[in-house]
Lab assay of single mutants.
Amino acid sequence: TFYNFIMGFQNDNTPFGILAEHVSEDKAFPRLEERHQVIRAYVMSNYTDHQLIETTNRAISLYMANL
C-alpha cells in the first residue's frame, strides 16, 4: 500500500520523511487504501500545508512508477 511505501521514509530528513511522520500520526489516514485517487483526495481534503500536499503528489507518482 501507499502507507507502507511512505513509512519506509520514516526518520529520513527529507520531504518524504516529513510526510511519513505526518501520515504515521494521522489516525484517520487510509492505511489500507491502494487507489492513489482516494489517497490524493484524502490529503487534499485533510491537509492544509501546501508543501505536504506537493510532497504527497510526488510520493504517489514515485509509488505508482514502482508498482
Rank of each mutant, 00 (worst) to 15 (best):
T1H: 05
T1P: 08
T1V: 05
T1S: 13
T1Y: 06
F2I: 05
F2H: 00
Y3S: 00
Y3E: 00
Y3R: 00
Y3M: 02
N4M: 11
N4L: 11
N4P: 01
N4S: 13
F5I: 02
F5Y: 07
F5W: 12
F5K: 00
F5M: 01
I6A: 01
I6Y: 05
I6S: 01
I6F: 03
I6M: 07
I6L: 14
I6Q: 01
M7K: 05
M7T: 05
M7C: 06
M7R: 05
M7W: 03
M7D: 00
G8W: 06
G8V: 07
G8S: 13
G8Y: 08
F9Q: 01
F9E: 00
Q10V: 14
Q10T: 10
Q10A: 14
Q10K: 15
Q10D: 05
Q10S: 10
Q10F: 13
N11Q: 08
N11C: 09
N11I: 05
N11K: 09
N11D: 09
N11V: 05
N11F: 12
D12K: 13
D12M: 12
D12Q: 14
D12N: 12
N13R: 11
N13I: 07
N13H: 10
N13K: 12
T14L: 03
T14S: 14
T14Y: 03
T14W: 03
T14Q: 03
T14E: 04
P15S: 10
P15M: 09
P15H: 09
P15R: 07
F16D: 00
F16E: 02
F16K: 01
F16A: 02
F16H: 01
F16V: 02
F16Y: 08
G17V: 04
G17S: 08
G17N: 04
G17F: 04
G17D: 03
I18F: 11
I18K: 14
I18Y: 10
I18R: 14
I18T: 10
L19F: 04
L19D: 02
A20T: 04
A20N: 03
A20D: 02
A20R: 06
E21R: 15
E21D: 13
E21Y: 13
E21K: 15
H22D: 02
H22T: 11
V23R: 01
V23S: 00
V23H: 02
V23D: 03
V23Y: 05
S24A: 12
S24K: 15
E25I: 10
E25S: 15
E25H: 15
E25M: 15
D26G: 03
D26T: 05
D26L: 06
D26M: 04
D26E: 02
K27D: 11
A28M: 15
A28Y: 14
A28C: 12
A28E: 13
F29Q: 01
F29S: 03
F29Y: 04
F29N: 04
F29P: 01
P30N: 02
P30F: 05
P30R: 03
P30H: 03
P30L: 04
P30T: 04
P30Y: 04
P30G: 00
P30C: 03
R31K: 09
R31G: 03
R31V: 08
R31Q: 07
R31T: 07
R31S: 05
R31H: 08
L32A: 11
L32F: 14
L32Q: 12
L32Y: 15
E33T: 06
E33C: 06
E33R: 02
E33N: 04
E33L: 03
E34M: 15
E34S: 15
E34W: 15
E34P: 10
E34G: 14
E34Q: 15
R35K: 12
R35F: 05
R35H: 10
H36R: 04
H36V: 14
H36A: 14
H36Q: 08
Q37V: 08
Q37E: 15
Q37F: 11
V38Q: 07
V38E: 09
V38I: 10
I39M: 02
I39H: 01
R40D: 03
R40H: 10
R40P: 00
R40G: 05
R40T: 10
A41V: 08
A41Y: 10
A41D: 14
A41K: 10
Y42M: 02
Y42S: 00
Y42W: 05
V43E: 01
V43A: 07
V43T: 04
V43M: 12
V43C: 07
M44D: 07
M44S: 08
M44V: 10
M44W: 08
M44H: 09
M44F: 09
S45K: 13
S45A: 15
S45N: 13
S45F: 08
S45C: 09
S45W: 06
S45T: 12
S45I: 09
N46L: 05
N46G: 03
N46R: 07
N46C: 07
Y47N: 00
Y47K: 01
Y47W: 14
Y47Q: 01
T48L: 10
T48Y: 09
D49W: 05
D49M: 06
D49R: 04
D49Y: 13
D49K: 06
D49H: 06
D49I: 05
H50T: 12
H50E: 12
H50K: 12
H50R: 12
H50P: 15
Q51N: 13
Q51L: 14
Q51G: 11
L52D: 04
L52Y: 05
L52K: 02
L52T: 04
L52H: 04
L52G: 00
L52F: 05
L52R: 01
L52Q: 03
I53N: 04
I53Q: 08
I53D: 03
I53E: 04
I53M: 07
I53H: 06
E54S: 08
E54K: 08
E54R: 08
E54Y: 07
E54L: 09
T55H: 04
T55F: 08
T55M: 07
T55K: 03
T55L: 12
T55C: 06
T55R: 05
T56N: 04
T56F: 15
N57Q: 12
N57T: 09
N57K: 10
N57W: 10
N57S: 09
R58W: 10
R58G: 06
R58I: 13
R58C: 09
R58F: 10
A59C: 05
A59M: 08
A59R: 00
A59P: 01
I60S: 01
I60L: 15
I60Q: 01
I60E: 00
I60W: 06
I60R: 00
I60Y: 06
I60V: 06
I60D: 00
I60T: 03
I60N: 00
S61T: 13
S61I: 14
S61R: 12
S61K: 13
S61F: 11
S61G: 10
L62M: 12
L62H: 06
L62I: 11
L62C: 09
Y63P: 00
Y63M: 07
Y63G: 00
M64L: 15
M64V: 13
M64K: 09
M64R: 09
A65F: 10
A65W: 11
A65D: 11
A65P: 05
A65V: 09
A65M: 12
N66I: 13
N66C: 11
N66D: 10
N66T: 14
N66K: 07
N66G: 13
N66F: 15
N66V: 13
L67R: 06
L67I: 13
L67G: 11
L67S: 12
L67K: 10
